[in-house]
Each structure stands twice: as C-alpha cells, then as structure tokens.
C-alpha cells in the first residue's frame, strides 16, 4: 500500500506504461523484419537452405534460464531479500552476456558453413539481420539490468527498487520471448 502510494507520487505507473508501449514498437519492428522475410522468400522461392547450428539452441536455453533467474531476483526484491536479489541479478547479467557472446560464436559457425551476410540469397542474410537487431535489444537490456543492479547497491526507497525491477523485467522477458519467436521462425523456415 505504501509502495503503491509512493509509486503514484513518483509518477511511476505511467513510466512503466511507457515501457509497455515501447515493447509494442519493438514487436512491430521484428514483425516487420519477419514479414519482410516472408515476402522475400515467397516472391522468388528462395529459402535459407541450411540446418541452423546447434549453438542457437544452446543460446536459447541460456536466455530462457536468464529469464528464470530474473524472476527469482524479482521475487526476492518483493520480499525485501536484497542480498538474494543482487545475487540473482548478477547471475542474470552473466547469462545475458553469455547469450551475447554465444550469438556471436554462432555467427562464426555460420561463416564456417559458408553462410555469409553478404549473400546473393538474402534469406541467409536475414539470419544475421534478425540476430544482430536482437543483440542490440539484448545490449539495451543488459544496460537496464546493470542500472537496476547498481541502484540496488545505493540506498533507494523500496518503491523505486521494485519499479526498477519491474521496468527492466518487462524488457528482459520481452527480449527473451522475441528471441524464442525469432528462433522458432528460423527453424520453421530452414528449408
């Protein structure tokens, strides 16, 4: 109740709402890219024509795990277990970074397979576009998480701490879901 009151005073609810709307814009962006892919492959009967490297699957597991650890961290934040919150935020950050590195590693594998970004078959270039644009979102997510973590070491009111958690949480879960969407989309279009 007190947290709710303070949230109203600090004008936090509309800010959280801003994040939701941003997620809609982001979603439209990826929807546009994947629709572009469909128009492209539909028009000239191109397809990706490769089997996606296993690395993408491992990365998917990593990012799904990071969503779970974030969930644990926000549960801890709600019950005022700041130590546990920090620990799991650190784990989330680590997993997020691992995902970032893993995606770049997956690019390396693609290049070894002869699947280049600059490619007469642009449906293969699209793999790079999807992952790169998603990595930009991951980067933004990592910055948000770091900010939340940093602020949790400063003495800020609980309302503010919870807000930070929710604000970065909405985004972090979203980039996670978007990756799963992109991965499934690519899997379905392998051939």
């Amino acid at each position: 109740m007190m947290a709710q009151l303070q949230e109203d005073k600090l004008n936090l609810a509309p800010k959280k709402f801003n994040m939701w709307i941003f997620i809609f814009t982001s979603f439209m962006f990826f929807a546009a890219l994947t629709s572009g892919f469909i128009v492209y492959t539909g028009g000239k009967a191109h397809a990706i024509n490769i089997i996606l490297p296993q690395a993408f699957l491992y990365n998917t597991i990593v990012i799904a795990l990071s969503s779970i650890t974030f969930f644990i961290a926000s549960r801890a934040a709600k019950s005022l277990e700041i130590g546990k919150q920090r620990l799991f935020l650190w784990i989330t950050l680590f997993l997020g970074t691992l995902f970032f590195v893993g995606q770049i590693y997956a690019w390396g594998i693609l290049i070894k397979m002869g699947v280049y970004f600059i490619n007469p078959n642009a449906s293969q270039s699209f793999i790079y576009v999807f992952t790169a644009m998603h990595l930009i979102h991951i980067l933004a997510g990592l910055l948000l998480l770091s900010n939340t973590l940093y602020k949790s070491y400063r003495s800020i009111p609980q309302a503010k701490n919870l807000f930070n958690m929710q604000f970065s949480g909405i985004f972090w879960h979203f980039v996670d879901i978007i990756w799963i969407y992109l991965y499934v989309f690519l899997l379905l279009n392998q051939y």
Binding site: M28, S125, V129
Partner: peptide
C-alpha cells in the same frame, strides 16, 4: 507504423553500405 519504416531503412542501409541483396 514507424518501427516498420526502421526495418525497411535498416535493410536499405545494409544494401547500400555492405553489399547485401535484400
């Protein structure tokens, strides 16, 4: 609708500057 323009423009930038064939 603006994010969709961004998606189009991003692909255009790749075609212009990196040599892709979208």
């Amino acid at each position: 609708s603006f994010p969709v323009l961004v998606a189009g423009v991003v692909l255009l930038i790749f075609d212009r500057s990196m040599g892709t064939s979208f």
